[in-house]
Amino acid sequence: MNAITTYFKDIFHGIKTLLTGMKVTGYYFTHARKEIITQQYPENRDTLKMFDRFRGVVIMPHDENNEHSCTGCSACELACPNGSIEIMWERLADPETGKKKKVIEKHVYHHSMCTLCNLCIIACPTDAIKMGQSFEHATFDRKDLTMVLNKPGSKIRKGVEE
């Protein structure tokens, strides 16, 4: 007799626990409109905005005169753990003072090697590079992932080096 009672008790307890779980899923099924959290990603591309600090890619901001603030000090190159930054620089004579000084030729950034650790941004003494918010970096050719960050014809902004 006792065994039969426990048998039926177990069955009813089992059904009860299953119904408790189904109540939760049932709530979300009927309140789908209110509880929805998914985003329709490719469709909402225009309105999608990443957070300000989001680290997507290293960029070098240029102002309207095509000027940047990179002095070519190689601090970012040294701080990088993966060797994803290479700075090609040369010594050119300053047109005003005639003194020779360091000028970057190319600030090469290998996005394919970058782990987006932010150490180069912290190391930069003149805030010449920063993290960009773009995140769609898939390409068909890995050459596209090697970028030259300074724009052609750009030069250093006056007053940065002081």
């Binding site: 957070f51 600090r53 989001f54 680290r55 987006l116 932010n118 912290i122 993290m131």
Partner: peptide, 15 residues
């Protein structure tokens, strides 16, 4: 995490 640290998985937030 993304808002404060800038990444969702590999944060590298502590220095």
């Amino acid at each position: 995490f993304e808002e404060t640290c800038g990444a969702r998985l590999t944060m590298n937030y502590n220095t």
